[in-house]
C-alpha cells in the first residue's frame, strides 16, 4: 500500500541558508507521527512546505500518491491536508461558529450547509456551547481547540499540528492529547511537532528527528528517542 504522505529529498533554502536539506519520510494512513528536533531545526519550515505556504527548493511531496509540492495552500487544503498554526489567531469580529464556518465553506459552498457542518464539528470537539461566543474572548486552551475545529472542518485526511500543547496546563494538555488520539479513529492521520518527549512517546508510533534541517534519525519513536545523537541534540538545545 502506498503511504498517505510521502516526502522525498525535500530541501528548502532561503538565500544561502539551508533550512531543510534532503528530508525524506513517510506517514501511513491512521498514524500519529512526530517531527521533533531542537529550536531552529526546520520543523516549521517543513510544515510550511507541506501545507504549501512555502515552495520547496527541491524534492517531492506526495499526498495519496499525487504530488502536492509547490501547489497553493488552498489547493492542498482541498486535497485533504490541514494544518494549525503555532500562534493561534481567530478571525476578528467573528463568533466561534463563524470561525469554523470559514473552514467548512471549503467543502460546503452554501451558507446553510456550512453552518450545519460547522456545528457538527463543534459538537465533535466539545465546543458546542461556545458557538455564539466572540472568538476573541476565548482563553488559550479554547483557542487551540478552535484551531483544531477549524482544521477538522476542512475534512482532512492528514492534519499537521504545530506545538498544540505549548502554554497549556497539565489537565488541558491531557485533554488535548486525548483529542489527538481520537483522530486516527476518525480516519485522520496526524503529524505533530512537539517538544515534550513523554507526550511524543505516548502519542506517536513513529518519529523523525530534524537537526539543522537534516534528518538525524527516523523510525519507531522509542528507538529514536533512545539514540544518543538525538539525546545530545536535545540536551544541547536545553542548555542554551
Amino acid at each position: 500500500m502506498t503511504p498517505l504522505l510521502e516526502v522525498q529529498g525535500l530541501s528548502k533554502s532561503f538565500g544561502g541558508l539551508h533550512a531543510l536539506s534532503d528530508v525524506s519520510f513517510d506517514v501511513a494512513a491512521g498514524e500519529i507521527f512526530a517531527v521533533i528536533g531542537p529550536n531552529g531545526a526546520g520543523k516549521t519550515t517543513l510544515f510550511n512546505c507541506l501545507a504549501g505556504a512555502a515552495a520547496p527548493t527541491s524534492g517531492t511531496i506526495r499526498l495519496g500518491g499525487e504530488r502536492i509540492d509547490g501547489r497553493a495552500p488552498h489547493e492542498i487544503c482541498h486535497r485533504g491536508l490541514a494544518r494549525t498554526f503555532q500562534l493561534v489567531k481567530p478571525f476578528r469580529g467573528m463568533t466561534v461558529l463563524e470561525n469554523v464556518k470559514v473552514a467548512a465553506f471549503s467543502r460546503h459552498p452554501s451558507a446553510k450547509q456550512a453552518t450545519t457542518a460547522a456545528q457538527a464539528v463543534l459538537d465533535r470537539v466539545g465546543m458546542a456551547e461556545l458557538a455564539a461566543v466572540d472568538a476573541e474572548t476565548l482563553n488559550v486552551a479554547q483557542l487551540r481547540q478552535l484551531e483544531i475545529a477549524r482544521a477538522l472542518a476542512t475534512q482532512p485526511q492528514l492534519l499537521l499540528l504545530d506545538e498544540m500543547l505549548a502554554g497549556l496546563t497539565a489537565t488541558e494538555s491531557a485533554a488535548m492529547c486525548e483529542r489527538i488520539r481520537q483522530l486516527p479513529r476518525e480516519g485522520i492521520a496526524v503529524i505533530v511537532v512537539e517538544h515534550s518527549i513523554p507526550v511524543v512517546t505516548s502519542l506517536c508510533s513513529r518519529a523523525v528527528v530534524l537537526c539543522f534541517g537534516k534528518v538525524l534519525r527516523r523510525g519507531a519513536t522509542r528507538e529514536v528517542i533512545a539514540d544518543p545523537r538525538v539525546q545530545e541534540a536535545y540536551l544541547g538545545n536545553a542548555q542554551t
Partner: peptide, 20 residues
C-alpha cells in the same frame, strides 16, 4: 466570510482552503 477571513489573517485563511 472569505473576505473577512482574508482581511484578518491571509495565511490562516489560505490554509483553510481560501483561494486568496
Amino acid at each position: 466570510y472569505y473576505w473577512r477571513a482574508l482581511r484578518d489573517n491571509e495565511q490562516a485563511a489560505e490554509a483553510l482552503g481560501v483561494n486568496a
